[in-house]
């Protein structure tokens, strides 16, 4: 029973192949629930943007395009690191697997740091929704609505990032104790799927919150 694949085979499965495919299908199904969840927010945002074009344009012009673009590049880099992590796992290269996971976590933390500094900036400019919100334009209410969606959607994305970093930490721990090998590394692939998906969400958030404010 020293075969790591056999050790990891749960009793309800007949073959490791079946177990791997089931795990992968499970993760993909979960990601589709996430598509619908962010999709609902995206739909609501679209409705309000159609109803209140001026207010949403004003809100969008408050975004810092430089920080947004840097964050996009950071996240794309983490995706590359995650993909490399998977390649290393497939080759059984545990040292480089661990290094890639650490890179993903660190870059993810940098992303969150930038994101939260943006939040603080918005708060100081009285753009955080609620009673401390201030806006002198005639579309103040609609600008606030823009920021409501901005905070809910990017906030929810940030929560997913934090969970993702937690998953990476767990995978790193399992790498460190030697759970993974060239034959068995399904959790790396599954965790990677989640991480890449969070990246995809950000690509759309960047497009709907940051880009519309650039042209006047």
């Amino acid at each position: 029973m020293s075969d790591p694949v056999a050790l990891e085979l749960r009793e309800q499965f007949a073959t490791p192949e079946q177990q791997r495919e089931t795990a992968s299908a499970g993760m993909w199904i979960f990601l589709m629930t996430e598509v619908l969840m962010f999709g609902a927010l995206f739909s609501a945002y679209t409705v309000y943007r159609i109803l209140h074009p001026q207010g949403f344009a004003l809100g969008s012009s408050e975004m810092d395009i430089l920080l947004g673009s840097i964050n996009t590049a950071i996240l794309l880099t983490t995706s590359l690191m995650m993909a490399f992590a998977e390649s290393n796992a497939q080759e059984g290269n545990e040292r480089w697997l661990a290094i890639c996971l650490i890179a993903v976590m660190l870059l993810g933390a940098v992303f969150l740091y930038v994101k939260f500094s943006e939040y603080i900036e918005h708060y100081h400019e009285h753009k955080a929704p609620g009673f401390w919100f201030e806006d002198s334009s005639p579309y103040a209410n609609n600008v606030q609505l823009f920021f409501v969606f901005y905070f809910i959607m990017t906030g929810l994305h940030a929560v997913h990032m934090i969970i993702g970093i937690g998953i990476m930490a767990f995978l790193l721990f399992r790498t460190w104790v030697g759970s993974f090998s060239a034959q068995y590394h399904t959790p790396i692939v599954i965790g990677g799927l989640y991480w890449h998906f969070v990246d995809i969400v950000w690509i759309f958030l960047y497009a709907i919150f940051y880009l519309p404010g650039l042209h006047r």
């Binding site: 609902a40 209410n141 606030q144 409501v148």
Partner: peptide, 28 residues
């Protein structure tokens, strides 16, 4: 997931009164 996010928005609107579904503040 759509129900979950809808109820989350109800909770946010109820706590912060930011107009997500309030016509007076531009919501629908």
């Amino acid at each position: 997931p759509v129900l979950a996010i809808t109820l989350l928005m109800v909770a946010v609107e109820r706590i912060f009164q930011v107009g997500i579904f309030d016509p007076a503040l531009g919501g629908d």
